[in-house]
């Protein structure tokens, strides 16, 4: 079984799960377990003694084989993202960092210029850099050149559930990339995750679709199966499209033949 390689790490699961927006820490943990994921995102927040249940480090560290990928959410500039990354590495002990820099809370679109600057610095500092980016093949290539371990183009706006609206651009990124391409953000259904894998993504990152499902653990399991199915299908080789019908049964006309 091919594994996902990110930096010096390998993962058998190709589903990365976000931990935000769950109704409770226990619902989140249950979904993480059901998904079989080995890589989850977390975010830095100020400590509040009234909300100790918000601290997910303890519960997540009890799950065997799980690696944390802190994000830099909240950062609007490269400088802030680098600061968040350094603090996060201290706390997580993990070299993974999801660089996420979005200055506008309305659309949450990543700032390509600040993202590029932050990634350059963090890659040089030895982080396994995983930038969340607009689906832009030129930016993706530039990020590969400065040492990112993957690029994570958005499928559609964060939390929007609009699916793979960037599909054609993501295909271009995949075609040009020598590092794993991971669709991050916007996916609503397992079929979209499956489609992303079929088109050549090495993994998908899902959060809202699982977190806000009526049954998050069941949805996490469904996404895991879809990701696996899409990956297997891609490796099996999809049939070519044809403009016209191509018969699957013999068309010899013995039924109408005169005897």
């Amino acid at each position: 079984m091919d594994s996902l390689r990110l930096g010096s790490y390998t993962f058998s699961s190709r589903l990365i799960l976000g931990t935000g927006k769950f109704s409770s820490a226990s619902a989140m943990i249950e979904a993480v377990r059901a998904s079989g994921t080995q890589l989850v995102t977390v975010a830095l927040r100020r400590f509040n003694r009234e909300q100790l249940e918000d601290d997910l480090f303890g519960p997540l560290s009890e799950i065997e084989g799980l690696t944390l990928m802190p994000n830099t959410s909240g950062a609007a500039t490269a400088r802030e993202a680098v600061k968040a990354a350094r603090i996060s590495r201290e706390l997580s002990g993990s070299p993974f960092i999801k660089v996420e820099i979005h200055p506008n809370p309305h659309h949450l679109m990543p700032d390509p210029i600040e993202t590029y600057e932050a990634c350059k610095i963090l890659a040089a500092e030895g982080f396994i850099v995983m930038p969340y980016i607009p689906a832009d093949p030129v930016l993706a290539k530039r990020l590969e050149e400065v040492g990112c371990s993957s690029v994570m183009p958005l499928g559609s706006a964060i939390g929007s559930g609009q699916g793979l609206s960037t599909a054609e651009m993501v295909k271009l990124i995949i075609r040009e990339s020598n590092i794993p391409v991971i669709v991050d953000a916007g996916l609503r259904s397992p079929s979209e995750a499956c489609a992303a894998m079929e088109m050549g993504c090495e993994a998908v990152l899902v959060n809202s679709a699982v977190a806000v499902a009526r049954n998050p653990a069941a949805m996490a399991s469904a996404f895991a199966k879809a990701v696996e199915a899409g990956f297997e299908a891609r490796n099996a080789g999809l049939m070519p499209r044809s403009g016209a019908a191509v018969a699957t049964s013999p068309l010899t006309s013995f039924l109408g033949a005169a005897s």
């Binding site: 976000g18 931990t19 935000g20 927006k21 769950f22 820490a25 989140m28 995102t41 977390v42 975010a43 830095l44 927040r45 100020r46 400590f47 918000d54 601290d55 997910l56 480090f57 997540l60 944390l68 802190p70 994000n71 959410s73 603090i87 996060s88 201290e90 706390l91 997580s92 964060i158 939390g159 953000a185 990152l205 959060n207 809202s208």
Partner: peptide, 26 residues
């Protein structure tokens, strides 16, 4: 301030201190 330095680092007037945890995030 790493854990092993926390007992020895003394707070000064006007220090800006942040105490941070990992919470849920995507």
């Amino acid at each position: 301030v790493r854990p092993d330095a926390r007992a020895s680092v003394l707070l000064q007037e006007n220090d800006q201190v942040e105490i941070l945890v990992f919470a849920g995030g995507g």
